[in-house]
Amino acid sequence: MVKLVMCVCRRSELSLEEFHDYWLNHHGPLLQKFASSYKVYRYVQSHTIDTALNKAVCDSRGMLSSEYDGVAELWWKSEAEFLEAINSEEGQKLRTIFLDAEAKFLDFSKSTAFFTKEHIIVE
């Protein structure tokens, strides 16, 4: 398995509630609709909640307080399968669709993405 992790920030004109609603109820179903064509095995959205615990956990470790509004996780069975999906003719069309859709609610300049391999320690 290979996983793409995206730590995302909303566009400045969106409230946190508007951002989460759009991401969950508009973008989520869009990706779900094309998941099999894009060979996405699993997709999870984690929405940041407004709690004093965020600052407390960062302060207790000397960490910077995160300004991320959420985390998206997308799994593929392998890097080869991911590359096959995005390099196909349909994958290229879907990539454009997803990027255009994401531009409506994400601030790319404040967000980041990276691939990971999971090591499950506690199940």
Rank of each mutant, 00 (worst) to 15 (best):
M1S: 13
V2C: 08
V2I: 15
K3Q: 07
L4F: 02
V5H: 09
V5Y: 12
M6E: 07
C7H: 06
C9R: 10
R11W: 07
R11T: 14
R11Y: 08
S12H: 14
E13Q: 15
E13T: 12
E13N: 15
S15N: 10
S15Q: 12
L16T: 14
L16E: 14
E17G: 12
E17V: 13
E18M: 09
F19C: 11
F19M: 10
F19A: 08
H20T: 11
D21W: 11
D21F: 07
L24Y: 03
H27N: 10
G28W: 00
L31P: 05
K33F: 06
K33M: 09
F34C: 08
A35D: 12
S36L: 04
S36R: 12
Y38R: 12
V40Q: 02
V40S: 07
V40F: 01
V40R: 03
V40T: 12
R42V: 00
Q45D: 00
Q45I: 11
T48F: 14
I49S: 05
I49E: 15
D50M: 10
A52Q: 11
L53V: 05
N54M: 08
N54C: 06
K55I: 13
A56H: 09
V57H: 08
C58K: 05
C58H: 09
D59N: 12
D59C: 12
R61P: 02
M63P: 01
M63Q: 08
D69R: 01
G70Y: 00
V71S: 11
V71D: 06
V71A: 14
L74V: 13
W75H: 07
W76K: 01
K77I: 01
K77E: 03
S78N: 05
S78G: 06
F82A: 00
L83I: 03
L83C: 06
L83G: 05
E84K: 13
E84Q: 15
A85L: 06
A85N: 13
I86G: 02
I86E: 00
N87V: 04
E89N: 07
E90H: 08
G91L: 04
K93V: 08
T96R: 11
L99A: 07
A101D: 03
A103C: 03
K104Y: 04
F105S: 05
F105E: 00
L106Q: 01
L106V: 10
L106D: 00
D107N: 14
F108M: 04
F108Q: 06
S109Q: 12
K110F: 09
S111I: 03
S111E: 11
S111M: 05
T112Q: 12
F114D: 02
F114A: 01
F115C: 05
K117L: 02
E118N: 11
H119D: 03
V122S: 14
E123P: 11
